[in-house]
Amino acid sequence: MHDKIHRSAGELAFYAVLFIFSLVLLWSAYGISGFESLSSPGALPMAVALAMVISSGLILLDSCRNAERDSTRFFRDILPPVIIVMMLFITGYALLLVPLGFLPTSLLFLVVSILYLRRGGIVFALTVSAGALIAIYIVFRLIFTVLMPSGIVPEAEILAAFGRMFGGAQ
């Protein structure tokens, strides 16, 4: 999809964004401690931000000067609908994770995305998602005691209740 002689769809815009972003970072790096001394906390950030500005500038210039557009179309080859939808799914996941909690959000995410990608088969999607989620829950929550946001499911309390049910609390 991307090669050097031809410019892909959206390539120039992406380089421009990188260049502008690098400029912002350079300005921010200058703000850390200015040209105070070689050992100031801002010395390395300024040097690398400058390297970013120069390299992204060269990339942008190069792309402007040499390349002709190739036959790619942005919403077909670079960012087709399927990728946009999946990006939206993960954004939704990130937003819902804290209010809804880990278990419901993950189940929702897995089922919806498997259904979407497969286009059908709700039983299959539910079984696979539930199975995978149980495995992840066992490894991360039970073995590695990672306390994921619990949200609407009071899983820590349920777990403690289970703990008491089998052989009492620790």
């Binding site: 009071p154 309390e157 349920i158 049910m165």
Partner: peptide
């Protein structure tokens, strides 16, 4: 009894 105890802890927890 165990089940009852579990439910009790659960509800108090909630």
């Amino acid at each position: 009894l165990v089940k009852f105890a579990a439910i009790l802890t659960l509800t108090t927890g909630l």
